[in-house]
């Protein structure tokens, strides 16, 4: 899996990740408090300025925006149809501003930086005995490690069914996929414990 983080050194990359996350939360709240087009348009422009200077190149930047823009435009059309033009413009600007700010943060905060922030956020939980911060990192790594294995298994099951002349169907593929994958849990857990990865 290739992360959406963009490995460059723009001015936004140099800002502390925590600051960027705080700004994003503040912006998210602010755009819902604002309901006039002018301040929202300014927010959207500021978002665009951040997003397009986050170092990903124009082409990649536009490619990432398309799925989000499709939903935003659909919402705006829906609003235009059933409500007023002013409300449609407000919804369009508000959502666009949010998407742009969020996209900029995603492109400029690395997976490692995110994990550090998550570990920090998990510290109170750890002190309360509810979760272990190190486990969050281990679990995340396990997902990234085993997604390609499960995809490979999915393809193998589909092929095996095709070889037997069965047209691959959702349920017939899903059941062996889940059972075989979950059965691995025992041996993976045994390996983790045998290597002493987790503190008692």
């Amino acid at each position: 899996m290739k992360a959406l983080y963009v490995d460059r050194q723009t001015w936004q990359h140099r800002l502390p990740p925590r600051l960027k996350l705080i700004v994003l939360v503040t912006v998210s709240v602010a755009v819902f408090l604002l309901d006039r087009p002018l301040p929202l348009a300014i927010a959207a422009l500021a978002g665009a300025a951040c997003y397009f200077s986050a170092g990903m190149g124009l082409r990649e930047a536009l490619r990432r925006l398309i799925p989000a823009l499709v939903t935003i435009v659909a919402v705006a059309l829906f609003t235009l149809l059933f409500q007023s033009a002013a409300e449609a413009v407000t919804a369009l600007l508000r959502l666009t501003a949010l998407m742009l700010f969020a996209g900029a943060v995603t492109a400029t905060v690395s997976i490692t930086q995110f994990m550090d922030e998550i570990t920090l956020a998990a510290t109170p939980l750890e002190k309360a005995g509810l979760a272990r911060a190190a486990d969050i990192g281990l679990a995340s790594a396990l997902v990234v490690r085993f997604v390609p294995e499960i995809l490979g298994r999915y393809e193998a099951i589909s092929q095996a069914q095709a070889a037997r002349g069965v047209r691959p169907r959702a349920l017939a593929t899903l059941m062996p996929l889940i059972i075989l994958t979950l059965r691995d849990a025992d041996s993976i857990a045994a390996a983790i414990d045998a290597r002493g990865f987790r503190q008692p």
Binding site: L138, A141, L142, R145, E149, D184, S187, I188, A190, A191, I192, D193, A194, R195, G196, F197
Partner: peptide
């Protein structure tokens, strides 16, 4: 556990 290393049957489930 520190004294005894164990290599399991399925190597793909050991690289985690």
């Amino acid at each position: 556990l520190g004294r005894v290393g164990f290599i399991f049957q399925n190597p793909q489930n050991q690289i985690i």
